[in-house]
Design a protein around this nucleic acid. Sequence first.
DNA 1: TTGAAAGCGCTAACAA
DNA 2: TTGTTAGCGCTTTCAA
Lengths: 319, 319
Amino acid sequence: MAVTIRDVALQAQVSVSTVSRALSAPGLVKEATRQRVLDVVAGLGYQPNRAARSLITGRTGNLGIVVPDLLNPFFPSVLRGVQTKAGEAGTSVFFCDSREDPDTEAELVRTMAAQVDGVVLCASLLSDDTIVELAAMTPLVLINRIVPGVSSVLMDSASGMDQVVAHLESLGHEDYTYLGGPAAAWSNGRRIQGLAGRARLLGSFEPNFNGGYAAAEQALGTGATALICYNDLIALGALAYLAAHDVKVPEQISVTGFDDILYATMCSPALTTVHMPTEAAGEVAVDLLASLLDGGPAEHRELPTTLVVRASTTRRPGA
Amino acid sequence: MAVTIRDVALQAQVSVSTVSRALSAPGLVKEATRQRVLDVVAGLGYQPNRAARSLITGRTGNLGIVVPDLLNPFFPSVLRGVQTKAGEAGTSVFFCDSREDPDTEAELVRTMAAQVDGVVLCASLLSDDTIVELAAMTPLVLINRIVPGVSSVLMDSASGMDQVVAHLESLGHEDYTYLGGPAAAWSNGRRIQGLAGRARLLGSFEPNFNGGYAAAEQALGTGATALICYNDLIALGALAYLAAHDVKVPEQISVTGFDDILYATMCSPALTTVHMPTEAAGEVAVDLLASLLDGGPAEHRELPTTLVVRASTTRRPGA
DNA sequence: TTGAAAGCGCTAACAA
DNA sequence: TTGTTAGCGCTTTCAA
């Protein structure tokens, strides 16, 4: 077996409790003793057994994150933020992908709950009630979702959408269609709010490339001069459909996305979209979780979004 | 506190050992007893404490994966495969992103080692020696890397590269340039092997969009009629550079990628690239890890790659 | 087929 | 400032 706290105690000629304290409550040990212990620890390469520690403290030192779709670049970026912040605190992170399925999502959170100190739930498709129930089971922080009494961090969709519409109107557009995401997605509702009735609503579509391709097909008949998409993946799908049908973007029709994933810069035309501070959101979520674990109250943070104007939007044809 | 094994024992009127056996060694318990225990377990919603179990068995029921860059869509896809397979066995997965830094990578594996049953190391930038050392510390499975004595699963780059070159030659190309990835990346060496001296070598470049943009700038002077890129992200960067400088792809110059990330279908022109079975690789890695944990020997698996011809390649100009 | 009891490695009273 | 000791919740001998 690996080296235990007793080996360290023996070699440092102190009791196990002194070793334990030297490591986790340095203030309670005489400096000289502490140094001796630390030397032995380093020499032996001792690493405390997390299971044993966890058994006593009730803390695991782990946290979990569940996202709807790892293949949407939006989410790995959130993961990265979570890992960065958690890593600083020596916390490890479990991940899970619910594949856009609410039942799987709830199941995953329940499973995780047993082995983490808390979980970050991203773009949840669950009902408010289920979320509240889950939050009673384990410290929970929501990303891009608001449920009363549950901590959350929001990348402000409504304001982002507002910027999109303002941008299109400044270009003379008057008739635009919103290609909506999943009905169960809270962000979708939020974006529709941001539209404030100023757009024709279509959808719901799957929030991925194929969904966008299908969406564009439906949208083309509406006579809209601009397509506002639920997210970049849908926008990219729409772009592909339009290209395949010789509809020029942005000359004939403008297209906007949401999220500002890496691809939004790479595609052609580059996508006008709303930038979301994904990594920052992940980091803030970890902070909120930490404050929850310290016994703090549920908190809500809002992160600003910014419209990034690229090549997929231009003046309304004939305007 | 949560419900413990004693609560179950009490209510089922058996000893704790019987409960334990009913749960983890059903054969050793009379069927009727077992059923009674199971009923109580369900009724109470009992979940065994993993820390306590782990303390005794020495197994954590967790595994870890470290990848160089979560923002490269190639890796989330591997993650997904790992999670899928691990989830089936009730195993949870820790993830870490090394940000393309070998020191960080080694550090992450060492940290993980203490709290997982094994780790999957993806596209490692470490030296063979370090990897061997790590493998002595914890069960280890490599993805896209071969080190003698260490389990690994390979998506066959050399053959993929061979297909790329054969494809270009069938289109009449004679002069092509390879835009290389990181020198420390084993896959890069492997791909160069696959080229078998048939291409001009340029690089190394960062394996991302910016790297590709810079790479194309250098490559344009070489007079090559085709650019073979280390990965799709580099190819995408190259595409962007070429578009910005009015070089028509594929009319003036053909471009190929590697990995077949989702975006390779979405870009314009859609990218001719080598499809990598990423999710499958993740799943196989988990299998290999499991066999390692069962005391099996280090194994090596190779997964086939296939060239996917899309719109970014065509006949050599003037051919 | 079952139960009693001894720990796994650690932390946290409680004493000294 | 340090040591002694009693468990945390579970699995696994060993006996019955």
